[in-house]
């Protein structure tokens, strides 16, 4: 106690700060940083969970580079990103833009849009899976055949399966993005629009010159957030293609599913860790790139 009393106020504050910080610090080091670091180390090792961990040098990375499945999966992951992020952002902006102007049952409609976001991805994936089944089970094909359009193989086709899996993933995230967009739209002062009305500019000019630029922080957030989501897509794919996860013929398989497969079906922990490191680097590079491209040039230091 004498030691504590002899401290200055600033030093006492530091002591207390560290006492309170200790719990989350220990938690983070133990639960987050240690496994992450361990995964990095593991990516340079061979391990099947039961054996001892053996150093493998760059073996895992070399194997990954030469693995044709990895490149298919790598491409799939970027297709999820390249289609999912722009489509989901465009859709949610259009919905939010118009929903913002709707007064009639506004809260109810907004709740309907938000509902899918609260629903379990597994349940959703299975319902959509049912939609996609061939006649006489599938909802969509039944509807198509009743008006004389030939059936479409959704989940059984190597070309159609990926978009078919992506659709519910986009739909599920829409509610969240709409809410964020609406909050962004609400934050734009009404006088900007009133001034534009007095100046007599067209609705299109108002949208492109006022609304979208002022919405930029919201857009940046959603682009980064949804990109990370699509790069890590897993549950929709896994649940909609359970017979052959990531199939048919790896045409829907994303990186996370490959990692899961390598680790818990192949028990090839070192190899899975190497794939994880690649995913980590991809996420990091894509996010930083987006933040760099969309950085705020207006702000002066």
């Amino acid at each position: 106690m004498r030691f504590y009393r002899s401290l200055t106020i600033a030093q006492k504050q530091i002591v207390w700060a560290w006492i309170f910080l200790a719990v989350p610090t220990v938690f983070y080091i133990w639960i987050r940083f240690y496994p992450t670091a361990n995964a990095f180390v593991l990516s340079f090792q061979h391990w099947n969970l039961l054996s001892d961990r053996e150093w493998a040098g760059l073996d895992n990375y070399v194997r990954l580079w030469n693995d044709p499945v990895f490149w298919v999966v790598f491409k799939n992951t970027f297709i999820y990103l390249a289609l999912g992020t722009p489509i989901s952002l465009a859709l949610s902006f259009v919905v939010a833009y118009h929903l913002d102007k709707v007064r009639f049952m506004h809260g109810f409609i907004r709740a309907l849009y938000f509902l899918p976001f609260m629903t379990s991805a597994v349940a959703m994936a299975w319902v959509w899976r049912w939609f996609y089944q061939p006649v006489p089970i599938g909802l969509i094909n039944n509807a198509l055949s009743s008006i004389g359009i030939p059936q479409i193989a959704f989940l059984n086709s190597t070309t159609n399966a990926l978009p078919a899996v992506l659709a519910p993933a986009i739909w599920a995230g829409l509610g969240f993005q709409i809410i964020i967009f609406m909050a962004g739209l609400r934050a734009i002062p009404q006088t900007y629009y009133e001034a534009a009305r007095i100046d007599g500019v067209s609705a299109w000019t108002t949208l492109t010159e006022i609304t979208l630029p002022l919405l930029k922080p919201t857009i940046v957030f959603l682009v980064v957030f949804s990109s990370i989501g699509f790069l890590r897509i897993f549950d929709q794919v896994f649940n909609m293609t359970t017979n052959d996860p990531g199939g048919p013929l790896n045409s829907t398989k994303p990186l996370v599913l490959l990692i899961y497969d390598t680790a818990f079906n192949g028990f090839n922990m070192g190899y899975a860790a190497a794939q994880t490191v690649v995913l980590f680097v991809v996420l990091l590079v894509v996010s930083l790139l987006q933040l760099y491209i969309m950085r705020d040039r207006d702000r002066v230091s």
Partner: peptide, 21 residues
């Protein structure tokens, strides 16, 4: 008449000048 057809101009309390321009 729409505001633009009235040949008026308005100055607002919060100025309503666009921060990105």
């Amino acid at each position: 008449l729409e505001p633009k057809d009235r040949n008026i101009a308005m100055v607002f309390q919060n100025y309503a000048i666009y921060p990105h321009m």
